[in-house]
Design a protein around this nucleic acid. Structure first.
Lengths: 183, 183
DNA sequence: GCTATATCGCTGCCTAGGCAATGATTGCCC
DNA sequence: GGGCAATCATTGCCTAGGCAGCGATATAGC
C-alpha cells in the first residue's frame, strides 16, 4: 500500500493524531460538565459504563479495556466503592483478583445519567448522517485496534470471570478516601 | 434529523467519546516514544508543529489552536525558549502580546523528527485506504468543529500577526526553567 | 516438590496540566 | 477622554494520572 502521508505535506489539519488529541481535549471537559451535579469524573463514569457493559470483571481488565493506568484505577475504585456504586469482592478461585460489580445504586446512577450523555452526543452529531456516524465509529475502532496492536503485546486475556459466576465475599474494610491520608 | 443514539442501545463499542478517549490514550504515549531521544513531550512537539505551520503567532493563539491550557503553555514555552527552539518577542503594536517564532534550530528539530512521525502514521494506518483516511480526517474535523462551537463562544480572533511582519525585539531575560523555582 | 516468572491489586512519588488570580495593556462606548 | 470590560502572558495551587516498586498469589519448568 502506497503511504498516505509525506513529510513535505504533513500538516496539522490533515493529521489524525492532532485531530484526535484536539477532539479529546475539547470533548472530555464537556462530558464532565454533564456529571457535575453527581460530581462524577469522566473517568469514573467510564468505569461505571465499562462495568455495566461487560458485567462483573477485574480491575486489571477494566484498566485494559478503558486504557487507564491501573494504579490510578485503584483510587477511582476506592471512591466509587465508598460511594456505594461498585463492590469489590476477592475471588476465591484466584486470590490475587478482586471481582468488581456494579451495585444497584451504581446501575441506577448510570441509568439516570445516560439520557444526558445520549442527548449530548445526538446534539453534537446533529448534522452528521447516521451513515457518517457509523463510518466514524468504524474507522475509529479500526484505529484503536491498530494502535492497540502496536503496544508490545500485553495480550488481552480471556476474561476469567466471564463464565463462572460464583465469587468471593465482601472485603470492604475501611479504605482511605483519597491519597495523602497519613494521620 | 432523527437522533442516532438511544439510551437503550448506547454502548462503549459504538460511542464516539469512548473511542476518541481510548485512541488518545493509546496514541499519545506512542507518539512521545518517537521523541524520546530529543526528550520532547508530545505537547512540546505540537507547539513546534503549530508554529511551523502557522508561522509566527502568539501564545494565546497557539493555546487555542492546539486546545491547550494557556498557563501550562507558558511553562512549555519557557522550556522551548531555553532550549533555543522558539523565540519570544514582545510586540510593539500590542504590548500585551508576545510574538512566538520558531528558531532555525527549532525548525531543524521539527524537520528531523517529522519523518519518524510520518512513518509512524503510515505504519499505523497501513491497512486503511487513502479514501478511508481522508474520510476519517474529514469526519474528525467536523467533530472538532462541532465540539468547538459548543464551548460558550471564545471567539477565535483573526490572527493579529498574520498580515504584519514587523515585530518587537528580544526579551529573553532569564526565565526560570520550571515552576517551583523560588530562591 | 521447588524455584523462576508472571500477574494481581495496591501504594508512594512525581509531573503535566487545569483553574483562578494577577498586573499590564488595549479597545469600546458613552 | 475617561472609565469599563476584555485580552494578554504569567504565576501559584491543586489534582489526576503515569511510573516504579511492593507483597501476595498463581503458573510453568524442572
Amino acid at each position: 500500500m502506497r503511504p498516505f502521508y509525506r513529510a513535505t505535506h504533513y500538516g496539522m489539519k490533515n493529521s489524525v493524531g492532532y485531530l484526535i488529541r484536539r477532539s479529546s481535549n475539547l470533548l472530555m471537559p464537556q462530558m464532565e460538565a454533564l456529571f457535575a451535579d453527581e460530581s462524577l469524573t469522566f473517568s469514573q463514569w467510564t468505569v461505571l459504563m465499562a462495568l455495566r457493559e461487560w458485567g462483573q470483571s477485574t480491575a486489571a481488565d477494566v484498566a485494559r479495556n478503558i486504557c487507564h493506568d491501573a494504579g490510578s484505577l485503584t483510587r477511582i475504585l476506592d471512591e466509587l466503592e465508598e460511594r456505594g456504586l461498585v463492590t469489590r469482592a476477592r475471588s476465591e478461585t484466584d486470590r490475587r483478583v478482586v471481582a468488581l460489580t456494579l451495585t444497584t445504586r451504581g446501575l441506577g446512577t448510570v441509568e439516570t445519567l445516560l439520557p444526558r450523555v445520549v442527548e449530548f452526543w445526538n446534539g453534537l452529531l446533529g448534522d452528521f448522517t447516521h451513515l457518517e456516524i457509523k463510518l466514524l465509529v468504524k474507522l475509529l475502532s479500526r484505529l484503536v485496534d491498530a494502535a492497540d496492536g502496536r503496544r508490545a503485546e500485553p495480550r488481552r486475556r480471556r476474561g476469567f470471570l466471564s463464565h463462572r459466576h460464583e465469587n468471593g465475599h465482601e472485603i470492604g474494610h475501611g479504605r482511605r478516601h483519597r491519597r495523602g491520608h497519613h494521620p
